[in-house]
């Protein structure tokens, strides 16, 4: 346990030693901020137009649902931005250790491969949560000036964190396979893109394959969370996905042992 904490502590801090982390945070905040602005202004415009119309025709004004019209599509957006940001977080998680030769320290001190992997995974996840903080700030503005339901926001963040952990586990695995950060990043992006796009083919594929593709597509499982529904099948999907990623990462490190 102590060794896991040591790895978490070191890796989480080391994100902030490199300028890459700040660039990622800045880009993530800027993109999610721009989308928040666009969605909010669209929403306000629609609501404003409706009020005008209702006054003109002397009808009762429509009820505009912030959760449905603003928060839900906004969560979708954050999920998409995340897909393309997470590989940049995971790329250096392990490959940097390989490049710098510090794996020699990790492999020769009493720490087990699984502890190294879990520590790095949690450090990556914590960094992802840091990335999400600005979006929480944006959403809190909605609560200040309106009265959206709180639960869908909470479930949205739970969904984001679960989806993020799946991507981090997958990205960490790619990072264990190479000592080159660029390759790790490109591999991560390719995997993200593939897992996202794969669901598109589901409609044109046969019923069996279509169902499989639909299930594999990582972002489809996020849909319910964005709507405020916490469904155990989706939780299981993400947890299973993370577990498989971590399992293969551990095996990848241990493979040094049986490649003799």
């Amino acid at each position: 346990m102590n060794s896991i904490l040591a790895i978490i502590n070191k890796d989480f801090k080391s994100f902030f030693y490199s300028p890459v982390a700040y660039i990622i945070i800045a880009i993530f905040a800027a993109l999610s901020g721009v989308f928040f602005y666009l969605y909010t202004s669209n929403f306000i415009e629609a609501a404003f137009m409706d009020t005008m119309r209702s006054q003109q025709y002397r009808m009762a004004a429509q009820k505009f649902n912030v959760n449905l019209m603003l928060i839900r599509p906004y969560f979708w957006n954050i999920a998409l931005i995340s897909i393309f940001t997470l590989p940049a977080i995971t790329m250096r998680l392990y490959s940097e250790e390989k490049r710098a030769g510090t794996v020699e320290l990790l492999y020769t001190t009493p720490i087990m491969p699984v502890q190294i992997i879990i520590g790095k995974f949690i450090a990556g996840l914590l960094f992802y949560i840091v990335l999400l903080i600005p979006t929480m700030f944006f959403q809190s503005i909605l609560f200040m000036y309106g009265s959206p339901e709180f639960f869908p926001v909470l479930s949205g963040y739970i969904g984001l964190i679960l989806m993020g952990s799946a991507f981090i586990a997958a990205g960490l695995f790619i990072s264990t396979t190479t000592e080159n950060q660029i390759i790790a990043a490109i591999g991560g992006f390719a995997l993200s893109l593939l897992l996202w796009v794969i669901g598109w083919g589901a409609h044109s594929a046969g019923p069996l394959l279509g169902g499989v593709l639909d299930y594999i597509s990582i972002i489809n499982h996020f849909e319910d969370f964005a709507q405020g529904v916490i469904d155990s099948t989706h939780i299981i999907y993400y947890l299973l996905f993370s577990f498989v990623g971590l399992y293969f990462s551990t095996k990848m490190i241990e493979s040094v042992k049986w490649r003799a």
Partner: peptide, 13 residues
């Protein structure tokens, strides 16, 4: 205790 040929150091620590 082991000192590898290239000291295993984290350069930004």
């Amino acid at each position: 205790g082991y000192l590898p040929e290239n000291p295993p150091l984290y350069h930004d620590m």
